[in-house]
């Protein structure tokens, strides 16, 4: 009985501690979804560098295996580091990482998408729960990035474009590793995701619906890396 009491008390303390960490003492990675340097929003038309007018309806993306390398050679690797960014849910764009410190951050690395081991690990939970709409049924595997919307350039049903980028089987392994040199002290790391830098690469009249792993998904995954900028 006493033992149980202690366990419960410890659990309470643990919850308390982690909560307070998120609020005040943690270094966080904050993603800012943009379109040509302006905040991206649903329903608002944007014009791409290729003169395609687009209205965004979905932007979701997995960020995984976040790692911070400090100038003193120490490395922080986040455990169970799988995060679904969803423009619909602003909270999802802020990822608390570790306790603040006054160490100089040399480098920040993470993956866009989900690694192959996790892709074959069976039923998972949290951000990796297949109910999140980021999992393919007919061909097992996570969708690393989902971008959907409308553009008059798309001669498709309802002028829709749909990009579901993923794939974990070689040679079409679509996860991409990102690495940013920093060399500063900070309490908040900001990363911009500028959608225009993706759409610059494509003509929506020609490329508007890629929803399976393969060559084209690999190409789009390459383009997607161009959207990420350390601020």
């Amino acid at each position: 009985m006493i033992k149980n009491g202690i366990v419960v008390a410890l659990l309470f303390l643990a919850c308390f501690k982690s909560n307070s960490q998120i609020k005040t003492d943690s270094l966080s990675l904050t993603f800012k979804v943009k379109f040509n340097q302006l905040p991206a929003a649903f329903g608002k038309p944007f014009i791409t560098s290729n003169k395609d007018t687009i209205v965004l309806e979905t932007f979701r993306c997995y960020i995984s295996n976040i790692e911070i390398q400090y100038a003193d050679q120490s490395v922080f690797k986040q455990n169970n580091s799988y995060h679904l960014l969803d423009l619909e849910n602003p909270n999802s764009l802020v990822i608390p990482i570790t306790t603040k410190s006054d160490k100089v951050i040399r480098k920040v690395t993470f993956n866009i998408g989900i690694d192959s081991i996790t892709n074959t690990s069976g039923a998972l939970s949290g951000d990796l729960d297949p109910v999140k709409g980021m999992y393919w049924a007919w061909q097992s595997g996570y969708i690393n990035m989902k971008m959907e919307g409308k553009s008059s350039s798309c001669k498709t049903r309802k002028n829709e474009f749909q990009f579901h980028i993923g794939g974990y089987l070689q040679p079409y392994y679509a996860m991409r590793k990102m690495e940013f040199l920093y060399d500063k002290k900070t309490t908040q790391l900001n990363i911009a995701i500028d959608l225009n830098d993706f759409f610059t690469n494509i003509k929506l009249s020609e490329t508007n619906s890629i929803m399976i792993p393969g060559k084209q998904a690999m190409q789009l995954a390459n383009y997607s890396t161009q959207m990420f900028h350390l601020e």
Partner: peptide
């Protein structure tokens, strides 16, 4: 062989 784990099969 599109499904890689028995647990994920029912989603199909």
């Amino acid at each position: 062989g599109g499904v890689n784990n028995l647990e994920m099969q029912p989603i199909n």
